[in-house]
Amino acid sequence: MKAVVLRNHGTVENLTVEGDYPRPEATTGKVVLKVGATSLNYHDIFTVRGMPGITIPMPVVPGLDIAGEIVEVGEGVEDIHVGDRVLVNPLDSKFNLMGEVQDGGLAEYALAEAGQIIPLPDTVSFAEAAAMPVAYGTAHRMVVGKNAVKAGDKVLVLGASGGVGTAAVLLAKQLGAYVVAAVGSKEKGERLLSIGADDYFNYREIGIDKWTRENVGKPSRNSTDTGFDVVINNTGGDTWHPTLKSTKLGGTILVAGATAGFAPAEDLRYIWSFELKVQGSNGFGREDIEALVDLVDRHDFHPVIDSVLSLEEAPAALERLENRGVTGKVIVAPWGEAE
């Protein structure tokens, strides 16, 4: 079968598109699906580079998010049938990720445990489904599951044009918040406005805390009227200190990642002086994915899709993702369609 394959760690250039990669076969308790769509995540870049403490067997097919049609059912599998439209929970029963320590979705076929399978309504396309598990599931757990955002809150989303970022914008808006997106270009900002953000600013042109002071008010230890109620920061690095300076008295900082660096300079004075709450959120659960599928099924929610591409285009698209050149999710459709 055709697949995008990583045989050695390095850069995106280490990925090759191969036409004769072994097609998986259904073993006991597992199923094979014809991949209708998969999506790219920043985690794929970490897989390509290699991650300390995680041994990735080579070769491996990246791609954590997978939606498609069941084509083969292994022994002992019940209530899953050939022809079923499904979405795959990227975590298996041993908490291993698809596309990391086992082959993922950047291929024509994929193997998964029966317990990973989530039924997919006909109203939800493969492209929409593949956009959701990792990025949107992470955002759902953080924004909805932690009960940190409520109607009327002023919410700042950093990294707002990425997968988790666009999902956080949509979910916070659905909860009734006033949402500001921090982005790296006017084009991205206008795109975020079109999906529901109330305002945006270009962090390359103005500092996060400066924009906050000029537009939301400098946080005060004597008032809860200025600063952001919630700041969603999944970037870390040099965005952490200005985040502390932008969150209001008693406000909350939500953290589910650190794409710009996990060991930023810290200033504890802001945390105690402004009584800040730093709420971590780790990944996603099956319940988050199912809730998102239900939202799309009810036509209450639509994942932001940057583009739908072929397997041959996937390595270049992953490089574009690495360089922060996308807004929303990049979908790869191995068979040319993602309906």
Rank of each mutant, 00 (worst) to 15 (best):
Y21A: 11
P22S: 08
R23E: 08
E25M: 10
E25K: 11
E25D: 09
E25N: 15
T27A: 10
G29H: 02
K30Q: 13
V31H: 15
V31W: 03
V32W: 03
V32D: 07
L33E: 11
L33V: 14
K34V: 02
V35N: 10
S39Q: 08
S39H: 02
S39R: 01
L40I: 09
N41A: 01
Y42K: 12
Y42L: 02
I45T: 10
I45V: 12
F46K: 11
T47A: 06
T47G: 09
T47R: 07
V48N: 13
V48L: 12
V48T: 13
R49F: 05
G50N: 12
G53P: 07
G53W: 11
T55M: 10
I56V: 15
I56W: 15
P57E: 05
P57C: 13
P59W: 07
G63L: 07
G63P: 14
D65C: 00
D65I: 00
I66H: 04
G68M: 03
G68E: 05
I70D: 06
E72H: 03
E72W: 04
G74V: 01
G74E: 07
E75S: 12
G76F: 11
V77E: 06
V77C: 14
V77I: 14
H81I: 00
H81A: 07
V82M: 07
G83S: 12
G83N: 09
G83D: 11
G83Q: 04
G83F: 07
R85P: 07
R85C: 09
R85S: 11
V86P: 09
L87Y: 04
V88L: 11
V88Y: 01
N89D: 08
N89E: 10
L91V: 00
L91S: 12
D92I: 00
S93C: 00
K94V: 00
F95T: 03
N96F: 01
L97H: 04
G99S: 09
G104V: 01
G104R: 03
G105M: 15
L106V: 02
A107Q: 04
A107E: 08
A107H: 04
E108V: 00
L111W: 06
L111F: 08
A112L: 00
A112D: 01
A112Q: 01
G115D: 03
Q116I: 04
P119W: 08
L120A: 09
P121N: 08
D122H: 09
D122Y: 10
D122W: 02
T123F: 06
V124C: 08
V124Y: 00
V124Q: 09
F126H: 07
A129M: 05
A129V: 08
A130M: 15
M132W: 05
P133L: 04
V134P: 11
A135M: 04
A135R: 02
Y136T: 03
Y136M: 06
T138H: 02
T138L: 03
M142Q: 15
M142P: 13
V143S: 11
V144G: 05
G145E: 12
K146L: 14
K146E: 14
K146R: 15
N147H: 15
N147I: 06
V149S: 15
V149A: 12
K150Q: 13
K150I: 08
G152P: 07
D153T: 05
D153C: 12
K154F: 11
V155G: 05
